[in-house]
Amino acid sequence: HFTSQQLQELEATFQRNRYPDMSTREEIAVWTNLTEARVRVWFKNRRAKWR
């Protein structure tokens, strides 16, 4: 589960860029205190939901 702060950060990034690269995902991981893998999976799932 994600905190509302984490989701806000993830959503804001998603609005700007639906396909963040590795370095962007790592930055998000640092800001949100999540692993890069969790961030990558979140984006994958979010893109699926967005379609």
Rank of each mutant, 00 (worst) to 15 (best):
T13V: 15
R51D: 09
T24M: 12
R51L: 15
E27F: 11
H1P: 14
T3D: 06
L10F: 01
N45T: 09
T32P: 01
W42C: 04
F43T: 01
A29V: 01
R46M: 06
Q5F: 14
Q15V: 09
Q15L: 12
E36G: 03
T24R: 08
D21Q: 06
E26G: 06
D21S: 10
N45L: 13
W42P: 00
M22L: 14
R40I: 05
N33I: 05
Y19H: 07
E9M: 15
S23T: 12
Y19S: 05
Q6D: 01
L7Q: 07
Y19G: 01
T35A: 05
V41G: 10
T35E: 06
E11Y: 04
R25T: 04
R47E: 03
V30Y: 12
R18C: 08
R51Y: 14
R46W: 05
E36F: 04
E11M: 04
T24D: 08
P20F: 03
W31V: 14
A12S: 11
D21L: 04
E36Y: 03
P20S: 01
R40G: 05
V41K: 15
W31F: 14
E26V: 14
E27K: 13
A37L: 15
F2A: 03
H1T: 12
I28K: 01
R40V: 05
F14S: 02
L34N: 06
V39C: 00
R40L: 05
Q5E: 13
P20W: 05
W50T: 06
V30Q: 13
E36A: 06
A48C: 09
R16S: 11
L10I: 01
H1Y: 12
R25M: 09
D21G: 07
L7P: 01
F2W: 08
N17M: 08
E27Q: 14
S23R: 14
V41S: 12
E26Y: 11
T32D: 01
F14Q: 01
Q6Y: 02
Q15K: 11
R40Q: 06
R46S: 03
E27G: 07
N17A: 06
S4N: 10
K44Y: 13
K44S: 09
H1V: 11
H1A: 12
F2M: 10
I28T: 02
D21Y: 02
S23V: 11
W31A: 15
W31L: 15
F43D: 00
L34G: 04
K44F: 09
R18T: 05
A12L: 11
D21H: 04
I28Y: 02
D21C: 07
R25D: 02
K49R: 12
R47D: 03
R25Q: 02
Q5W: 14
T35W: 03
Q15G: 07
R47G: 01
Q5K: 11
F43W: 02
R40N: 09
R40D: 07
Q6E: 03
A48Y: 09
T24A: 13
L34H: 04
F2Y: 12
R18D: 05
R25C: 01
A48R: 15
W42Q: 03
A29C: 06
A12H: 09
E26Q: 14
F43E: 00
S4R: 14
K49H: 12
F43H: 00
R38I: 15
F14I: 01
K44L: 08
R25V: 08
Q5N: 09
R38P: 02
W42A: 00
W31D: 09
T35R: 02
R47S: 02
M22R: 15
L10N: 00
F14P: 02
K49A: 10
L7Y: 07
R18W: 06
A37K: 13
K49P: 05
V30N: 12
E9L: 15
A48N: 08
T32K: 01
M22G: 06
F43K: 02
E26D: 06
K49V: 14
L7T: 07
F43L: 02
H1E: 12
D21A: 06
R40T: 06
A37P: 10
I28R: 01
F14G: 01
M22N: 06
T35I: 04
R16Q: 13
N45Y: 14
T32V: 09
S4Q: 13
N33Q: 10
W50E: 15
E11V: 04
A29M: 03
L10V: 00
T13Q: 15
R40F: 07
W42L: 02
P20M: 03
R46Q: 06
E9V: 15
E11R: 03
R46H: 03
